[in-house]
């Protein structure tokens, strides 16, 4: 069953998350998501990896750490160890607005229906829904509201710039 929501629809996940604890190390092929430290240490080697490479930021690891690498990264994952830790929202917004990052921003970890709308507005376009939840149900969370007051990733205008003057 697909757990990934991307650009508003369920889809298959081709990416494998590689954690530093993985005994086998980095697989030879395939699309991989590596930790920030792994990326910073092995950046050059990873650029020759046979498959795409993304980096996962944990809370406390800011986008600034990747500022020079964004062109090399088709995807940045932002980890939510617990959904109530909201640092990732600011990271996504920063990636989109300060750094103009155009690639995929994927929420991973404790990713649940009731936070999707906020995440999406902050610039996430992919959500790896927590394994025990039904992703097709979670998908509904993207449509909780049709009205927003603030600027967001889809519309850079707050409501007072959307009204006809």
């Amino acid at each position: 069953m697909a757990q990934l929501i991307k650009d508003g629809a369920l889809c298959e996940n081709s990416w494998v998350r590689v954690t530093p604890e993985d005994a086998e190390g980095i697989p030879a092929n395939g699309d991989i998501i590596v930790s920030l430290s792994c990326w910073l240490e092995q950046k050059e080697a990873l650029k020759n990896h046979n498959g795409k490479v993304a980096v996962c930021l944990k809370p406390g690891q800011e986008p600034a750490e990747l500022a020079g690498d964004l062109a090399d990264l088709p995807m940045i994952a932002i980890d939510f160890p617990v959904f109530a830790d909201g640092r990732g929202y600011s990271y996504a917004r920063e990636l989109r607005t300060r750094y103009g990052y155009q690639g995929e921003i994927r929420a991973v970890g404790d990713v649940l229906q009731d936070q999707l709308f906020y995440m999406w507005r902050c610039g996430f376009n992919a959500f790896d829904i927590r394994a025990d939840k039904d992703a097709s149900e979670a998908l509904k969370g993207l449509n909780d509201f049709t009205v927003t007051y603030q600027a967001d990733a889809r519309d850079p205008r707050p409501i007072y710039r959307r009204q006809p003057e």
């Binding site: 830790d85 909201g86 929202y89 600011s90 936070q115 906020y118 902050c122 007051y149 967001d152 409501i159």
Partner: peptide, 13 residues
């Protein structure tokens, strides 16, 4: 009030 209502970035401070 409007800026802070459902501000997506600041819902989990």
């Amino acid at each position: 009030r409007q800026w802070s209502t459902f501000n997506p970035e600041f819902a989990y401070l």
